[in-house]
């Protein structure tokens, strides 16, 4: 009998492992009161929102191994929906966040649905194609007339009407810190949701699809349903990222559809952090994005080249091992399952 398998982890121990994370989250949230402001507070806000994109990618592609290169499509559709709702229907951005995320989710689902039904390369090809098509559409006639063309669509950002009532000195900091809090809360919720899903039975079904789809199908897993629901959860994260980001940072331009902006950093974070682990990519997200941001002043556009080279090296070093260090984590999870089982027998 394996020694490991039958030790039941105590409640206290589990709380103990969450405590440091809570502590770090609390300190992090308090950064503005400790005096952080200006450029880097904005950057942290951005990075928080990018966590939603990273988790969206990790939750679906990290488990099912269907590479979703179309994340910029979902993010971008949400951002443009928000801008369009504001411009053409006059919906204030505060109220446009939810509907625009929903619109983007529905759009993504409808357009990806056919490729979710089948196995093979279709999904990844479709996902690679969509942001490129969208970038073409929003900048070319006749769509550019309605979608703002290269200049994009601008509007007044989240809580701006409220901030106008404040003394001029406080305005900027009020908006900055509010955005930071909102994005932090969104990041924390996204992390908890992703973690719960990825390590639930459903999450493991997504993993089974990734590891041997035919086997999963032939041994009872409704693979189409699993892919569909997984995609839905993952895409809602990306949709919210797009809506919230757009609400805070007008104007919305074609940049959201450009992979160098909305795909390269999250993808690198997912691979560096370990596909499907959620925790790894979350940590990597902060590291990768802060460095990406800092690199702009140093090497400009070469940062994309650098990150892509890093990505290639990481993948090639461990072509199948990008999932390898889930192992220890899983072993612990199973041991608690077994403990429950044997306790019931």
């Amino acid at each position: 009998m394996s020694r490991l398998a039958f030790s039941k982890p105590s409640k206290l121990k589990r709380v103990g492992s969450i405590l440091p994370a809570l502590f770090i989250a609390a300190i992090y949230m308090l950064l503005p009161t400790f005096g952080l402001r200006g450029f880097w507070l904005d950057v942290l806000t951005r990075v928080n929102i990018f966590l939603l994109i990273t988790l969206s990618l990790d939750l679906y592609s990290g488990t099912t191994f269907y590479l979703n290169l179309g994340v910029p499509f979902t993010v971008g559709c949400a951002a443009y929906s928000l801008a369009l709702l504001n411009r053409y229907l006059g919906v204030p951005v505060e109220y446009a966040i939810l509907p625009s995320a929903a619109i983007s989710l529905v759009l993504s689902l409808v357009i990806f649905l056919p490729s979710l039904r089948v196995r093979g390369a279709y999904f990844s090809i479709m996902s690679l194609l969509l942001p490129i098509v969208m970038a073409g559409i929003v900048t070319s006639q006749p769509f550019s007339l309605y979608l703002g063309g290269e200049g994009g669509i601008t509007y007044s950002p989240l809580f701006f009407s409220y901030a106008r009532g404040l003394p001029v000195k406080e305005r900027a900091f009020f908006l900055q810190s509010t955005y930071f809090y909102i994005s932090s809360i969104a990041a924390i919720i996204a992390f908890i949701v992703s973690y719960k899903v990825a390590y639930s039975d459903f999450g493991f079904m997504m993993r089974s699809v990734g590891q041997d789809e035919l086997l999963a199908e032939a041994s009872g897993v409704n693979t189409v349903r699993v892919k569909l629901v997984g995609f839905l959860i993952s895409s809602s994260l990306a949709s919210f990222a797009g809506s919230i980001y757009a609400a805070m940072r007008p104007p919305v331009t074609v940049d959201v559809f450009i992979p160098a902006n909305t795909l390269v950093p999250p993808l690198t974070a997912v691979i560096l952090g370990g596909m499907g682990t959620i925790v790894g990519p979350t940590i990597a997200n902060y590291f990768i994005l802060l460095v990406y941001e800092a690199l702009w002043d140093v090497i400009g556009r070469w940062r994309v080249v650098l990150y892509m080279c890093l990505l290639i090296v990481l993948v090639l070093l461990r072509p199948q091992g990008i999932v390898y260090y889930l192992y220890t984590k899983l072993k612990r999870l199973v041991s608690s399952k077994i403990a429950e089982l044997t306790a019931g027998v």
């Binding site: 039975d201 493991f204 079904m205 993993r207 089974s208 590891q211 041997d212 086997l215 999963a216 041994s219 009872g220 897993v221 409704n222 999932v323 390898y324 889930l326 192992y327 899983l330 072993k331 199973v334 399952k337 077994i338």
Partner: peptide, 19 residues
């Protein structure tokens, strides 16, 4: 034919959970 990166427990339980 098994799921190479899933522990034995999940290799079996996922089918049960699906049914």
């Amino acid at each position: 034919r098994v799921y190479p990166y899933l522990p034995v427990y999940y290799n079996v339980s996922l089918s049960a959970r699906s049914v």
